[in-house]
Design a protein around this nucleic acid. Structure first.
Lengths: 343, 343
DNA sequence: ACACGCTTGGAGAGCGTTTTCCCATCGTGT
DNA sequence: ACACGATGGGAAAACGCTCTCCAAGCGTGT
């Protein structure tokens, strides 16, 4: 069954009584061909069950119809298997969903690429060859050289999240500062006296922006100094941070947490410590991931339209592929506050 | 920059002063070549920055170095965007993580393929051509013809989750019956009098097995009849089902929920209804996803070693690729009970 | 010395497409 | 009638690689 050779253009051409070139033209809908032949070709295609060989086609067109989703895992430690952590984060799924929503209708493949600290050169090489036509790059640690390499090698790419250092490369991002400010305003509005925060890793730009956005907004509300703990975006680190904060600042009455997973952890710790949320302590998260909804009380959080952003990233990449000389662009999304029960 | 033609085998050969064939042999480590030339070739490779063109290579070897992760979305409804729901389910991430853990070290690509109700033939066609060397197939609704088509067309494939109908195709699966029985035993051990259950969609084999496993085990404990509601594995449907169950059977004191997401929903509804968990009502979930840990009280659940299973699926597929005549095999994993606070 | 194997490098034939030429045919305006 | 631009089909050259032959070189046994 599978041993039989697959039908090729040649076979179709023979059956339809035309040349390979004509069949190719019909299939790709390029140039006019006689309606009569057109018909013959299509019936031949049906009868043979012909499907164009992707490799052969790509070899000559230099297009693969695939885009790579590049995930950096340079931050992996041995004791902290990055893969399980990253992939099970809702973040990953939301991005994939957003990308697929635009890629799939167009028949574009999505290929997963992980790149370690060493693999950057290799990745660029692979990309320049037949690996993929372009790349959507995700979750970069600061100082990652990848954006620079990508830009320099002229590989069409779009980042999700701005590059840490200015590099001529397209990206979509959220206005993280504004989002954090939204949370700050909300917390201040409730009349909090001693706000604290749980920040994300200091080497990712989004984290930095959330920190500065929160501080700046709180300063406007008269809170010059905000105690802070740093986590790594996992629920577990949220719990640890909250415990530390509680120990150091027992009088705290509001906490801004840089993502929902950590916020859920913080919530649990607060409740275990006998604090009522939101009456004793108000909590605001960030992302509006599914965890926010299943928390009890439901988490007040900053909505991060990741699906939309990813979809846009896909669209940007695609249009860049159509027009290689297109300008580098960026799209910044505005976050909104989702008021639920914790603040 | 990117306009410059990439170096080809020919270029390397010229620089090294040998023939294309020799360079090819050196690069692929096939046959012996003179150490002297060997050296010359490698330095030429380095100097040119040569990277083999994947398409060209695949065209002749008929191997792509890619496996497809096939996700069926035939159950999509317009009002229920499948993609966002499916991809943000921890299930998806865990599978990807498991697959990657074995694929990545081997340099094998993972390509995401979604296939709709119509697309089966197309998928098979794409697969038989250069799309991928094989497929890992996920989340199939019952009566899905895909396993049959795959088997018939001789495409190397491994299912995650057994096919609904017997088909000569390899798969990995969990002993869902045994898992449900574990939960049942636990609930019975706590001395429950009125157990109920929230089941998954009746058209997925795993659901069916969990239902029958739970019923059978409960029957052994003297509970002949178990009231049941059916959800679709989302937290929301878990909430709905729990509410219905509570209304119809106010005296219930134990509930088995077919996955953790629904269990979290059930937990929330129970608490909102003023029931204490586990004292008034014991709850057991299934999967041991991250949601189980962040629930409060922490969810007692059945551990589903999805990462291991996916990794094994990848290994099975790979070995099938190496030896196309390998026998169809299946691996069934044994679930374990994770005793936390809800039961 | 000679024949005979064994090793190693090169020439070249594909792999299945797309695409560039080029040629034949046809309709049109003078 | 005749030249002339369109139009549409076919032959064949890539695309970059692998791999089968083939020939040359070498050592060995008789």
């Amino acid at each position: 069954m599978q041993s039989r050779r697959l039908p090729t253009l040649e076979d179709v051409a023979r059956m339809a009584g035309v040349s390979r070139a004509t069949v190719s033209r019909v299939i790709n809908g390029i140039r006019n061909v006689d309606p009569q032949l057109h018909q013959q070709v299509w019936t031949a295609v049906d009868q043979t069950g012909y499907v164009p060989n992707r490799m052969a086609r790509s070899l000559v067109t230099r297009r693969t119809g695939t885009v790579a989703l590049v995930v950096s895992d340079s931050e992996t430690h041995d004791d902290d298997p990055f893969m399980s952590r990253f992939f099970s984060d809702p973040y990953f799924g939301r991005v994939v969903g957003g990308l697929m929503s635009v890629l799939r209708p167009l028949g574009v493949q999505l290929a997963l690429q992980m790149v370690g600290a060493d693999g950057h050169k290799r990745l660029v090489g692979d990309l320049r060859n037949g690996q993929a036509d372009g790349a959507v790059v995700l979750s970069l640690p600061a100082r990652d050289p990848l954006p620079g390499l990508l830009a320099a090698s002229g590989i069409p790419a779009v980042l999700i999240g701005r590059p840490a250092e200015p590099v001529p490369i397209s990206y979509v991002d959220l206005d993280n500062e504004a989002g954090a400010a939204l949370a700050a305003d909300r917390l201040a509005l409730r009349g909090c006296r001693r706000p604290v925060m749980i920040a994300g890793p200091p080497d990712v730009p989004a984290s930095v922006d959330r920190i500065s956005g929160f501080r700046r907004a709180m300063a406007r509300h008269g809170h010059a100094w905000i105690p802070q703990e740093t986590g790594n975006f996992t629920q577990d680190s949220g719990e640890r941070s909250m415990r530390a904060l509680l120990a150091a600042h027992p009088g705290l009455d509001a906490v801004f947490v840089a993502n929902d997973l950590m916020a859920v952890g913080a919530l649990l710790v607060l409740q275990d410590a006998g604090r009522t949320v939101p009456d004793d302590v108000a909590v605001a998260g960030f992302d509006d991931s599914s965890a926010a909804l299943s928390a009890r009380p439901a988490l007040t959080t900053v909505r991060h339209p990741l699906e939309d952003m990813s979809a846009e990233a896909a669209r940007m990449l695609l249009s860049r592929l159509d027009d290689p000389d297109a300008r580098v662009t960026s799209v910044i999304y505005e976050p909104t506050l989702v008021e639920r029960q914790t603040a």
